[in-house]
């Protein structure tokens, strides 16, 4: 049910260091986000293409392999990206104490 989904998102967003959660469809369009509209759009625009590229790269190297998760570590954050055939979940975590 929708409330289960929103509850899960809410619970996840209270985890230590979690700054935002963005969930996209298979076109990179936003289904749900805990970030403001501008920032959400940036993640959708700039992070979503990385998923497809990573997926392709993995299977090009080895057709029997597939992308299961993507983590991007930056100075300020770690992006945890869970890709699926139809959806992508991006979680932005501040990894500092």
């Amino acid at each position: 049910t929708m409330s289960d989904v929103d509850e899960t998102i809410k619970r996840l967003s209270t985890r230590k260091g979690v700054e935002g959660i963005v969930i996209l469809n298979d076109e990179g369009l936003t289904i749900r986000s805990t970030l403001d509209a501008d920032l959400t759009k940036k993640y959708a625009t700039y992070v979503y293409p990385l998923v497809g590229k990573s997926r392709t790269s993995v299977s090009e190297i080895d057709p029997e392999n597939e992308l299961t998760f993507l983590r991007i570590r930056t100075k300020k954050h770690e992006l945890m990206i869970s890709p699926d055939k139809e959806y992508t979940m991006i979680v932005v975590q501040n990894h500092h104490e």
Partner: peptide
């Protein structure tokens, strides 16, 4: 329509569990 679908609910459930471990 998406948010109330089963496939989406399963995706959010599974992905959130994986992400929790990573966190």
């Amino acid at each position: 329509t998406i948010v109330t679908s089963h496939t989406f609910a399963n995706f959010v459930d599974t992905s959130s569990k994986i992400v929790e471990r990573a966190l």
